[in-house]
């Protein structure tokens, strides 16, 4: 696994370059592939770009979409900002908890799903809204949310 990751990161550095501005695209591609930034990946990236690991960690940890803790294959982000809050985002969270058994900040035991709160998704007119990986879902109801999650269980 790790030797694979090392190779993968070297390929990414070839693709995006080894300059400082290459760091974010590399981190983003690693997260796409491995779901989060394991410490060993950050060490590898630092070596490829010839910067310190602390610098890679410091940069990655600034951004909420670059997970530095273990994260599931499908990351569910439920909007917590005011309009979605008014439109009962808590019911959506409860529906997810009922189906998957996780609360915000947690990951399922099989490593398939992680649940987080996120700030405004720009879908206030279709609230409550959530993002699963890169896909946006709006006008949610607890039932609709469960249907969507079931479709992800099969992936």
């Amino acid at each position: 696994m790790i030797s694979n990751a090392e190779e993968f990161i070297a390929q990414l550095a070839d693709k995006h370059g080894r300059k400082r501005e290459s760091l974010l695209p590399i981190l983003q591609d690693v997260v796409d592939q491995y779901y989060y930034l394991d410490e060993s990946y950050m060490v590898n990236i630092a070596r490829e770009l010839d910067i310190s690991t602390a610098d890679v960690y410091g940069t990655a940890s600034f951004y909420s979409f670059l997970g530095i803790n273990e994260q599931g294959k499908h990351v569910i982000r439920v909007c917590q900002t005011i309009v979605c809050d008014m439109k009962r985002k808590e019911d959506i969270i409860d529906a997810i908890t009922e189906l998957l058994g996780i609360r915000p900040g947690e990951t399922t035991h099989d490593g398939k799903f992680s649940l987080f709160y996120t700030n405004c998704l720009g879908s206030c007119h279709k609230g409550p809204a959530m993002l699963i990986n890169d896909e946006l879902y709006g006008d949610l109801t607890p039932e609709k949310t469960k249907d969507i999650l079931v479709s992800y269980m099969k992936r």
């Binding site: 900002t81 005011i82 700030n119 405004c120 879908s123 206030c124």
Partner: peptide, 10 residues
């Protein structure tokens, strides 16, 4: 675009 309640750019 990240301002809460803004989605016109999208």
């Amino acid at each position: 675009e990240g301002e809460p309640g803004t989605f016109k750019d999208r």
